[in-house]
């Protein structure tokens, strides 16, 4: 695997957008440097030949952990909604949604 190219400020801004974060000019500068340093440390693995190794998503090879289709108690709605920033008519309230779900 070849060494990926260094991180750019544009990429940092793009990634912040995906993560719903806003960065000041200064933060873009700092994060680009700091993330770049972590990523260049990661060059030690990006240059490894790991062909044939199965990516490891879990420590152990468990499979088929299933529960039976039996109803359990739901939360008390008032307790749930008490933690919400804004509520109306038993529902969570948000401002304008600009587009439909992708």
């Amino acid at each position: 695997m070849s060494d990926p190219s260094p991180l750019t400020k544009q990429e940092v801004v793009h990634v912040a957008g995906l993560a719903r974060l806003e960065l000041s000019e200064d933060e873009v500068e700092t994060f680009t440097a700091q993330l770049g340093s972590v990523l260049s440390h990661a060059a030690d693995i990006s240059s490894l030949d790991l062909e044939g190794l199965v990516p490891m998503a879990h420590p152990f090879d468990l499979e088929n952990i299933l529960r039976s289709d039996v109803p359990t108690a739901s939360l008390d709605r008032d307790e749930l909604l008490a933690a919400a920033p804004s509520v109306e008519a038993g529902r969570f309230k948000v401002g304008r949604i600009l587009g439909e779900a992708p």
Binding site: G90, R91, V94, R96, I97
Partner: peptide, 8 residues
Amino acid sequence: ADASLIDY
């Protein structure tokens, strides 16, 4: 719409 209500 100006606001939306969500039911989960």
